[in-house]
Write a protein that binds this DNA or RNA. Sequence first.
DNA 1: CTGAAAGCGCTTACAG
DNA 2: CTGAAAGCGCTTACAG
Lengths: 340, 340
Amino acid sequence: MKMSDVAKLAKVSPATVSRVLCHPELVSKETRQKVMDVINSVNYKPHAVARQFRTKETRIILVVVPDITSSFFSEVLRGIEHIAVTSGYQVILGDTENSVEREEEYINLLYQKQADGLILLTARLNKKKLEELSGQFPLVLACEYMDGLNVPTVSIDNISSARKATEHLIKLGHTKVAHITGPISIVLSRDRLKGYKQAMVSHELEIDSAYIQEGDQTFDSGYNQMLKLLSLETPPTAVFVFNDDMAMGVIKAVKDCYMSVPEDIAVVGFDHIKMSVIYEPKLTTVAQPKYEIGKQAMELLLKQITGQLMNKKKIVLKDELIIGASCGQNSATTRTLEKI
Amino acid sequence: MKMSDVAKLAKVSPATVSRVLCHPELVSKETRQKVMDVINSVNYKPHAVARQFRTKETRIILVVVPDITSSFFSEVLRGIEHIAVTSGYQVILGDTENSVEREEEYINLLYQKQADGLILLTARLNKKKLEELSGQFPLVLACEYMDGLNVPTVSIDNISSARKATEHLIKLGHTKVAHITGPISIVLSRDRLKGYKQAMVSHELEIDSAYIQEGDQTFDSGYNQMLKLLSLETPPTAVFVFNDDMAMGVIKAVKDCYMSVPEDIAVVGFDHIKMSVIYEPKLTTVAQPKYEIGKQAMELLLKQITGQLMNKKKIVLKDELIIGASCGQNSATTRTLEKI
DNA sequence: CTGAAAGCGCTTACAG
DNA sequence: CTGAAAGCGCTTACAG
């Protein structure tokens, strides 16, 4: 069943049927009714690809995500998808499984006009390529902020959040604060490391390079890096960890060494994933507005697609330090007092 | 840049360019080379939608998932996506956020020919509608098995897995075994409940209807239902729980009542999500081959799309009972001995 | 308010 | 092995 068949049945031209569907206000009430009756009675559905081909818009966007099984990204994705569907767009999922090659394969879809725009939840591509891409297609970078990059971006301020998280530990009286980073190849890791260092320096604490260990984002790597830190001659008394997965691994390592969190070691994580609330002790962690990041990224993309361009706008959303039990507010207060 | 432009530059017809791209074996080596050189030098990419429109295949499939933020579904999705991309297909993500209406909206995409096939990770639709859909479009149902439904399906045998899980508790010496179900409106919940009952009956244990509580799949609901069970006059000594999220909530409830898992209450979960290994005590749980379910679902869908139809085949994959610490293998053995 | 006609960029059956 | 031509199902500028 195609539009011309509907037209015949309704005794109008195909153009009129098309108008009823796309611009009903251009058609007289009676004609409209007549056509709608036929459409409903034969259950006609317009051929999406034909329309896309004719109008040159697919109403599809592509979302490239480094790891779809991650609790963090899947919530951002939900935000994107929800707004997309509400606005009449569909989402093609591009799970790169952390591979740059797959990232580039997906981006090919844009050149083939398979999608009207792109949201990147990961940016392993270099700055030049990203800007070039952004010049050619509607593009939004979410989660990762890249300094001096001329591409619309939605993210939190990772540097200041990391600084805040570290300062929380310092204010609790800790001086030997370690940091387990994410893969140092990604900007996020470098930003959070920067924030950690800023906090240390501004409180005149020494940054012991043995206190900085690189993890790979997984629970196990948090576990292993923590064992390393614990076996130092002077182990830290507090650790700021790149993400919650690793932070939980850190806690597990501490437990396995017959020590306690927060009594012996205070831990702060990052992301506030669902599990961070369930794990014991409940994590102190930086909550990112995951759904909101997705939502705003999609809205920014839509603005570009519809041409309400906003000169490469950056949106920085508010994060929040969620106080759990993994830093020991109370015992820390005591420590501060002892110092005084 | 379109195909006819490339053709002009290469001094051949558009048909030849098309053949170079789609059926290179039909073109002489020299012509092919000449055309490829032009394609590369101008970086021509064929217009995907035009091709889709002409060939009547989108090489897009639709995956409808009830909850993209769930660790379980996102791993199944990864399996689907991986095989899809490897086979030259793209995946449109349909996150229903557990709403039946949204499920139907997504399915509309099939009628509009936006996708070549559909994988359902949730089936709230009734049997008749599903079979009708399956008659019209390539369709695979994954995760949920529906009795007597004539639709290709990939799943585990939920009844026998649930029976096995419950029997594990019974063999450990428990006679007062409770079950916290999922939402009883979904088939999976009813199947696992069935398995639980089978195990109880076949071991001649009484099924106390107060021992069966309906949860909603979340941690919190596991927590709440467990509190209810613990406040019974004769509380159970073991609980088989519909999924791991709720099982962790159950454990938390037990702890909060100053009791221990597994000493006071033994717990078995379902799914073997990542967190189940990290949580303490480590869950005993039924592992579903999540990635494999996704993979096989996609392969089954591809077979339908390419017309290698396999009379509404069902694939039942093997699950595995993973023994953690939440059932107390040892203490249980003791109990059994005591009984003797 | 409505219709006739052109055309979006490809692929493929047909002819040579 | 190659080209000319038709046509996939829509939408929209144009004319009336």
